[in-house]
Design a protein around this nucleic acid. Structure first.
Lengths: 375, 375
DNA sequence: ATTAGACCGCCAATATTTTGACGGCCAATT
DNA sequence: AATTGGCCGTCAAAATATTGGCGGTCTAAT
């Protein structure tokens, strides 16, 4: 059994250690994105990534970068929407010392910084109209001028841009230059919103749990169902937030459906969850009626939908049943298995309405775990 | 955001709906097997699958069949080791009516049955030596003769064989014909034992849980660790058995490390787990000493390693902490969240040595789950 | 500075759970 | 047929948990 054949031509060509594969998810959409990334990575044509907020456009951009020949070079990201309009030019192209108030020293722009590498222009749709012109010229001339400088510097930067806006519309509304659009969007990659690729949700959750670290968390089937069917208006970013929250709140725990819903609910910061009935505690009518209990103690099942006592009961029940099954119906042994005294076990059985026969599923069932005979 | 580009040449060539991909696992070994399957599936050369018992040789064979052009045709499996020696010939080649005692009617052999399709000869290493000769002739002549018949029937059957034996050794010991071996093993596929591809264990577990159906089960990280580090002498088959057992014993539950170990332990069918000390209950020395309690009640932590009470306490503790964190340290609200009265909650906190401040991890933490602003 | 509301901890009364001990049943042995 | 060993179910007493109330602290508004 030691001969491992060498089959010619069956080399590992299908799964090179391809960074595009590091994208999380198996949905058709993600597979498509992977294909597109592989394709685009072999070139240096400008790529535009579109998709709603938080769906991971930057992740895709980075993946593309790492798939490309420039993987060893820098990947520089600029959020065109986040940078104040008057700083953007200097941010992108740099400036010479003293070129404007506050320009204390010379500064290298991101274009230059990313030379030989990849420049990621995020939220390109938010770029001011006049900057669009300058950007276009840079792209066409393949060289930049620092602000306040006269000399041009040739650049060799791969451009990936991204936006969550509908640029078609922006163009119609004259907020975005059509010529720039065509320059940037030679190779478009669209990422559908998370809700259109439900298959990715489970893998993403798994990924985020790993990534966040700390004690792992688990979701029941129903909990997963909720997560998979939520609309995720904030896409992967929102999902990550929820998972972060879950890891924080329920470390090492199995998270149930009802708990998932509390993950979505924001704690009503001050005003407690009380129903609108707490006011007339000393109201004329029926003054002594209610026994005036501590207002903070309010009973009833009106909890966060979660009932600890009930949960513990269920948990106990499950274990009693399991133990009984393991012991094949022998109460004394079942009790022993869960470190209870027999009588206690019996009591609990009565309370839970568990009968011995409930454990005796199939007396046959030749489940002999350890004994493996030759095939 | 509606433009989904059509990129020429980026067609889905990488992931055809390839049945080889249905093999479970991502280990290098399984990937290798997948490659070999794809390669072999394009041909009709004889494939021999080797690997230890229970590692899924038949699964691989079926996958290969379904990858091949014969996917639409029959896949017939014969366990050469399981069929009594004198029936094997008739089983494989069929017989004519009355050709031997008991041959009441004519019977089509598996070779014929699998014509145009694939014949899977499992445990070929156990085939009687004289049958090996007959098999070899059939393979060379590409035609069979039913037992008791004179006419030959041409066949077009793809042969996949498998064995867990070391055929090299069998050949040395003259138990297996070398010429037949070379005939069958033109394209060998070896499947390493499960313990050498730990990476596959988790996917396999997942797969089996799905396949078995019923309420899902979950494993804690430590439980998974045990499962992943067990030696699995029975390979995938044993793993499946254990998972079946687990699904039966712990439906819908999170399975802990200690419970996993009980999965491996076989219930000592009759002789109960007791220590060897139950006999001298009325022994001369110290006759009244021990309070003579119900023998079946034996206390102490000597359970199956699992302590239900402790477990429930831990469970409670986890939820108390979670609730307190959710309520950002406000006990009354935390109590409310788990449907307990505040005072009860406080009591429990005291018992569990939980303090309010333990919940106040970081008062900052702008975890605003729902609010997703534009990127 | 006072007041009101939201919370907290502690306590005695009440409710539930766990324990130990018994007596009975059943099947295998003597 | 009687005995033994292994189990089962029930009961009263002891151990624990939960409840309702109260008095007090702290903060924010009056």
């Amino acid at each position: 059994m030691e001969y491992r054949p060498e089959i010619p031509g069956s080399q590992r060509t299908l799964h090179p250690d391809d960074p595009a594969l590091h994208l999380v998810g198996d949905s058709a959409a993600i597979e498509e994105v992977r294909s597109l990334i592989r394709y685009a990575a072999a070139t240096t044509i400008p790529v535009m990534i579109t998709g709603p907020s938080g769906c991971g456009k930057e992740v895709v951009a980075k993946s593309l970068h790492r798939c490309s020949e420039r993987a060893g070079e820098k990947f520089v990201g600029v959020n065109c929407g986040a940078i104040p309009r008057d700083l953007l030019e200097s941010e992108l192209f740099g400036h010479e010392k003293g070129s404007f108030t506050g320009a204390i020293a010379q500064r290298i722009g991101q274009f230059e910084d990313a030379s030989k590498g990849t420049l990621f222009l995020d939220e390109i749709g938010d770029m001011p109209f006049d900057m669009q012109v300058k950007l276009l010229r840079v792209l066409e001339e393949k060289q930049i001028e620092r602000v306040g400088s006269t000399g041009a510097i040739p650049i060799d930067t791969r451009i990936i841009s991204a936006t969550h806006q509908n640029l078609d519309q922006a163009i119609t509304e004259k907020r975005f230059r059509e010529d720039l659009f065509y320059r940037l969007s030679v190779f478009p990659i669209d990422i559908p919103p998370l809700k259109e690729r439900r298959d990715d949700i489970a893998p993403l959750i798994h990924h985020f749990i790993q990534q966040i670290g700390g004690e792992a968390i688990y979701f029941t089937a129903e909990a997963m169902e909720i997560l998979e069917n939520y609309a995720w208006p904030g896409n992967a970013r929102e999902l990550r937030n929820i998972i972060e929250r879950a890891v924080l709140l329920f470390p090492g725990m199995m998270i149930s459906a009802s708990q998932v819903s509390t993950l979505f609910r924001r704690r009503a910061s001050n005003a407690p969850t009380y129903q609108a009935d707490s006011l007339p505690s000393r109201f004329p009518g029926a003054p002594e009626a209610r026994p005036f209990m501590d207002q903070s103690d309010r009973r009833g099942t009106l909890g966060g939908g979660f009932d600890l006592k009930k949960h513990l009961m269920q948990e106990e029940r499950k274990y009693l049943l399991s133990a009984l099954r393991m012991a094949e119906g022998v109460v004394a042994e079942a009790a022993h298995l869960v470190s209870l005294r027999r009588t206690t076990f019996v009591e609990k059985m009565r309370r839970h309405k568990i009968e011995r026969k409930m454990a005796l599923g199939d007396p046959r069932s030749g489940l002999v775990a350890g004994s493996i005979r030759s095939e």
